[in-house]
Nucleic acid binder design. Sequence first.
DNA 1: AAACCACACAACCGCCGTACC
DNA 2: AGGTACGGCGGTTGTGTGGTT
Length: 242
Amino acid sequence: MGRAPCCDKANVKRGPWSAEEDTKLKQFIERYGIGGNWITLPHKAGLKRCGKSCRLRWLNYLRPDIKHGEFSDDEDRIICSLYATIGSRWSIIAAQLPGRTDNDIKNYWNTKLKKKLLGINSQRKSTATANHHQQQHQSQYQQPQLLSGLDSSCLPTVATPSQDLFISSFLNNQYDQMSFGRVERSCSSSDLIFESYLYGELGQAPPLEHSYEEIKNLINTSTNNVAGADAYCTSHDDHCRT
DNA sequence: AAACCACACAACCGCCGTACC
DNA sequence: AGGTACGGCGGTTGTGTGGTT
C-alpha cells in the first residue's frame, strides 16, 4: 500500500501560478511565516494549491533573496567544479551559490552549461542536421569554451580508472557505479571536504586539493576522443549515444 | 501569415530520510 | 518498533516564447 497523497489532487489548482496567487502566498509568508507546515499553509493562505507546490514556488521564485538572471563566469566555474566532484547534488551545489536555487542550477546545467562545456553552439535542429558532418568536424577541433578558460585551481582532482571514461561521464552526467562508483568516492578529495559541502560550513567553494591540469588537458582533447567513439551529444536533444 | 520546431524555465512526480506519535 | 506525515531532493514533464521554414 502506498502513501496517502499529500493533498486532494482533484481539488487543487495546478500549472503556472498567477500574479494573484503569488501575492497571496508572499504576503501570507511575510506576515505569518511558513508556520512549520507546508501542507496546511495553502488552506490558511486561501490558496487552492498543494502544499508542495507552494513550497516550491516560494523557494524557487518568490523568496526575496533569490537571484534572477544570467549566471556569472565564476558561478559557471563553481558549478562545473562541484559537478565534477559530487555529481548532480544540486542542493549541495546551490548551497555554494547564494541566491541560486537547486532547480535553477539544474535547469541551467541541463539547458546551457552542459552544451557550453561541449563547445556546441546552440543551433537549430535543422541547421544541425544539414551541417551534421560539419558539426562533427567542429566538435573534434573546437575547444570546449568553458573549460578552456578555467583556472585550473578551481578544478578538483579526480582519479578514475579511465580518464576518458571520466571525461565522457563528466560531460554526460552518466556516472556508472559498477565501473568507478560515485565520483566523490573515487576523488582524492577527502570526505572531510565533502562533509563541508554537506553542512554548509564553507561560505564559498572550498580550495580543492590538487590541480586539475591533467583533466583539463584531457578535456581539450576529449571531444576528439568522445566523437571518435561516436559518443557525443546531439545538439537538439541532449541525449548522448554511445 | 501560419505551422513547425527547439529552447528555457517553471512546475510536477515519486522516492527517500527523518521526526513524531 | 512500527506507522504516518512531512520536508527535501533529483529526475522528468509541461508550457510559453521566439526563431525558422
